[in-house]
Write a protein that binds this DNA or RNA. Structure first.
Lengths: 226, 226
DNA sequence: AGCCTAACCAATTCTTGATTGGTTCCGCAA
DNA sequence: TTGCGGAACCAATCAAGAATTGGTTAGGCT
């Protein structure tokens, strides 16, 4: 009679005795058989019960672990890029980056602000669009760094990586250098100024306006291409 | 003489001749030395110039590549989790999720709203904290789905994965079931209602208030534990 | 029919050696 | 003294093969 559920009770006793924390790997099945004195078939039945019960999870080649199966980490940049569009990326930037700028205004150090100014100066002196874009990217990332929040920075990097992957094939035909009155110059200036003055709303709005301009330019460029 | 910049001009000629596309790996330095008939030191000087110029990038163990250095894909959830703290994660949620809720209010379909209501109902009927948290997670993710923006959804998933990883070792001691007057019930109600009424500001504020409550509870729990 | 054992499969991890950019040191010559 | 060339060494990375592990199947035994 006890034989039917024997493996399960033995396994439960084994686990209860050690009180293992979640995400702990327990010995491979072949060893556990010997330890518990049960055949592998019976052990696997017991494991199947506990797995369906959400008490542990298994994976080929990895092993058997305590707790619930970890959610699939949906952060494969290439995968995201394949599913989305420039429009969605721009929309996400419009929602996320102003919030990051707001936080940057609160937490930026003097060093951060100095680097922001350096980025602006470098972007004005850029000789090619390629160099300008490097400076622009660096400025936006410095804002994200100035927020001094690792998670926000990581999310920004992910968003940025997706953006680059999506517009991968784009080519900036014009070999001209950026014009001296490029709209971004003034917008960046306002953004950095707001951050420097700890004006959270101002920084958020400056970033929003800047990205709106970028979006407008993208749309214009797309229509001009047709 | 020509000798001073010789390596650089030789390298430029080599590259111009092949017109390699971006992201192409060029031969290892030791081979390139022989090909160009230059010493490694000189070659490395030339490479350093071109790298600082943004024309190529190098990495130990990988090689030298044409184009700009790809932003390190910060999508390793475990890596982020190791560098951050629950406080930062909570702060990021407070900045990001209200914006997602705003977008959800604009784009949610009838199906989305039906699923949101289903999540709420299920959370009220939860018998254990475990079940309740599943419902809560699903509700928040459904809001992110309702925004109908692949990038936003991916960012939400990343943030969520980090959150789970950070509070990994947490243990919900209380085996009690969630109380009937749990604060989240009313807050979820207001959130879903705002989304249903296409009230973008309302949805954003409802999400903000809800997360603020969650944050307050976390702090209270932490202080109680001391 | 049910069980144990053994063998095999595919996914994953571990191990080992080779590759590669970065650095240091010594000798030599201008 | 200064600078260049060559060689050796270092740490990060990659690549290929061996070993591990959960999942499955087949045969023999009670």
């Amino acid at each position: 009679m006890d034989q039917g559920q024997g493996a399960l009770t033995q396994l439960r006793a084994y686990l209860a005795q050690r009180d293992l924390p979640a995400n702990t790997r327990l010995p491979p099945e072949r060893e556990l058989c010997d330890i518990l004195g049960v055949s592998r078939g019976e052990l696997r039945k017991a494991l199947a019960v506990m797995e369906s019960n959400g008490e542990l999870w298994r994976h080929v080649g990895k092993g058997t672990f305590i707790g619930t199966r970890p959610a699939k980490e949906y952060s494969d940049v290439a995968g995201i890029a394949a599913l989305t569009s420039p429009r969605e990326v721009m929309q996400a930037r419009l929602l996320i980056e102003p919030q990051i700028a707001r936080e940057a205004a609160l937490n930026a150090t003097a060093g951060d602000i100095a680097e922001l100014r350096q980025c602006m100066q470098a972007s004005r002196q850029a000789q090619t669009w390629r160099q300008y874009e490097n400076c622009d990217n660096r400025l936006h990332r410095t804002v994200a760094e100035a927020a001094h929040n690792t998670v926000l920075l990581a999310l920004f990097d992910t968003l940025n990586a997706v953006r680059r992957a999506v517009v991968w094939g784009r080519l900036r035909d014009k070999v001209d250098r950026p014009p001296k009155d490029h709209h971004s110059f003034k917008e960046h200036e306002l953004l950095v100024k707001a951050i420097e003055e700890r004006d959270m709303d101002g920084a958020s709005q400056a970033m929003l306006r800047h990205l709106s301009q970028v979006q407008a330019n993208l749309l214009a460029a797309r229509q001009a291409a047709e």
